[in-house]
Design a protein around this nucleic acid. Sequence first.
RNA 1: GCCGGAAUGGCGGAACUGGUAGACGCGCCGGACUCAAAAUCCGGUUCCAGCAAUGGAGUGUGGGUUCGAUUCCCUCUUCCGGCACCA
Length: 891
Amino acid sequence: MRPSALQPHYQPERIEREAQAHWDATGAFRAGADAAAEARPKYYCLSMFPYPSGKLHMGHVRNYTIGDVVTRFHRMRGYDVLQPMGWDAFGLPAENAAMANGVPPAKWTYDNIAYMKQQLKSLGFAIDWERELATCTPEYYRWNQWLFLRMLERGIAYQKTGTVNWDPVDQTVLANEQVIDGRGWRTGAVVEKREIPMYYLGITRYAEELLSALDALPGWPERVKTMQANWIGKSVGVNLGFPYSLKSALDGAETQGVLRVFTTRADTLMGVTFCAVAAEHPLATHAAKNNPALAAFIAECKRGAVIEAELATQEKKGMATGLTVDHPISGDRVPVWVGNYVLMTYGEGAVMGVPGHDERDFEFAKKYGLPITQVIDVAGKAYSMDGWEPWYAEHGRCIGSGKYDGLDYPSAIDAIAADLGSRGLGEKQVTWRLRDWGISRQRYWGCPIPLIHCASCGTVPVPDDQLPVRLPEDLVPDGTGNPLNRHSAFVSCACPKCGQPAKRETDTMDTFVDSSWYYARYACPDNAAHMVDGRVKRWLPVDQYIGGIEHAILHLLYSRFWTKVMRDLGLVDFDEPFTNLLTQGMVLNEIFFRKEAQGADGGRIKYFNPNDVDITTDAAGKRTGAVLRSDGKPVDSGGIGIMSKSKNNGVDPQSLVEEYGADTARFFMMFASPPEATLLWSDAGVDGSARFLKSLWAFAVEYSQAVAPTLPAAPENARALATARLPAALAARRREIHLNLRQANYDLGRFQFNTVASACMKMLNALKAAPKDDAALHAEVLREGLSILIRVLSPITPHICHQLWRDLGYGEDVLRAAWPEPVEAALAQDEIELVLQVNGKLRGHVKAPATAGREAIEALARGHEAVIRLGDGRPVKKVIVVPGRLVNVVV
RNA sequence: GCCGGAAUGGCGGAACUGGUAGACGCGCCGGACUCAAAAUCCGGUUCCAGCAAUGGAGUGUGGGUUCGAUUCCCUCUUCCGGCACCA
């Protein structure tokens, strides 16, 4: 076809508008659009859907550009690609916005979705928008409710109590994020722990499969699999009992009991000098009845943090209960302590204290003067009570353990477990760190839990034909508890069993429920009668899932669990939802804040956007501080952290797109760093990306007439340029093109897009440097080179490539072009240059025919001036030849 | 605290299986064009010594394996992510 006239100047705004209009008009990104598409192999490329927080942030742009590059690359390689998009639309920020602005969360959310969708469109992503979904719509969340009821029927969902943060002033449950230094974020009141009834999903039933199936996920990064395995935390040990008898304070009656503990170090059992229980443990409660000091200590422990990180870092404290239990082997009396470091949620809520061989117990014993005994000997090491040494915790042989002396770790555990078993006081056991998934949230903006509480029938599931339980969309939370509680139209209902007036459950589901199966719904978002249908079979599982590393554990684990539940219900026929996973590194930015002076209960922290902050430097250019531009007064540095609303350190990509265009924004995002790496945001360098695209455009304009009319579209395939007839200098440039193509293809395969961007820049540099002595041959090399460059670049900057492909006359639509492959003949060379090393140090280069053998190269090296000079007559000990790369002479 | 990861010029980063460290780009320096500026183009740019040829040092710290280590092993430091109610 004849090329149309290229605009003389690069006009991204116009090019991008036209390309997007073309894609819209042709329905370019509809997956499975017709029979021809269905005939191609499918490829499901999914990026984690965004929370509609208001505007896209850089993390989104990075995530979705990566997904788009993968999508477009596979499309050109012949796949029928599905890349859908939707909205993780329930959650806390909508309630916070409602409190701040008085706007209902629903309106705020839908407005945000409309704005962000337009932003996504302006970036030119190859998204099939016909499949768009939002989790806050009843059409979506009814299936959360439906599946929850199926889980309830099977006992996978069940009720028990759970601990929450309680703000006593606002009379409301707070998220962990809303607790700052133990105080409520709005009231500043000291937060209390509360035990309330909650619904749980039995993820621990799937612990074994969730762990072992990690091995069947070769397409997942090792680090994610390791994190998940550690989170699931399978440990094999011994569950053992310390018998005790208690005298009732009321009537003096003796009750017999057994304190259960779990340990992976049963071999150290004879070194037990105390036991420690959690503050919530029944023994602690019992002991506190007549012991006000202990009761006060327990109360203090219970007041403390809910968050594990805080529990783990707080000072280890304990108090004796005055109770003792009997050692299960020796029968010795062992004192029972309450320890603030013992977690009620792990194992039995009690641990045996072996200060001789556990660092935490050692510190605890030192602090409270409890005895320490050595019961494990490691050959050649001398034990001392004075200070902890890491080897104390190593495996060794038992000493000071009576009949077990001399046994090694496994045999000691076997012997001790056998003896405990014969007394009915213990057995080997597998314990998991993983806990069941508590999904109840005392919040408005979430999926209602479909239950009804009836005075006579108890808790009754909402019948399937009454689903969905619709969330009223016009409420405005005010921070004092769930507004659903006060909304009688929602709460009041009839009991489905007896018809009597009853109350609807007002807790909503954890938003992780919403995101645990959305990937399946994209296959059939329009099905009003079923959660999933046959179309899932074509698209699922997801071939490539892309999202932030911060989701490595929770979201991905919950999704895997949910998939297995759906499989066991016969809804899907695969075991794992995501075949390949790319964990994108986070986009970080600096954090600036001021602690504002406030009342007696401490200052609130106010965060400032880095865009509004100037860095001050000294004469040497070294950073001295930071000031807020608006008032010139200093702000504190909060270090570097993930871009987030709460830290106000996000950078709006919109301005970047408006100033430079989507292609530049996309190119820079890909060029700045490899996808998996953490990226500290800086827009220094955006200019370079813009310059490259401008320069590419100018180059295409300059040579469009020379290059355009002569050759068919993909000459490296259709009619190979004969390297032999090219002058050497021109052939060398052509070789660069194909070398960079080879490199780009390799890098695309491993998702290293920054070097793909580099390769494109190098290709343009090579084309610019191609000698023009022979105008016809020069034009042919350019014709081929540009066609390769435009196609390789098109997944990253699709708009400019769309336009250039047409205007240079390569074809109608670069989307339908075949992906280029390097031509072997173009890569071949007669003579190669080898690195010459003497004793491992670079001393020069030797040229050799490409066909030269080991001996010939060795001879060349021995005769080299540098080898003779540096060898200084010493005998050559060894010559190492790495074919095609280097020769190293050792003297 | 525990689990996972990262560290390379002034900056972002490259170096595929242990084989030329710093590709590509930014910034900076010098030059061309311009009345001037912007834009663009050309050259230089890890550090130290030297006019140069060249030599030495160098991939967070300290050690180890190897003819050869950014790459493998051990140690430490700092930073980032997760820790179950932010998403």
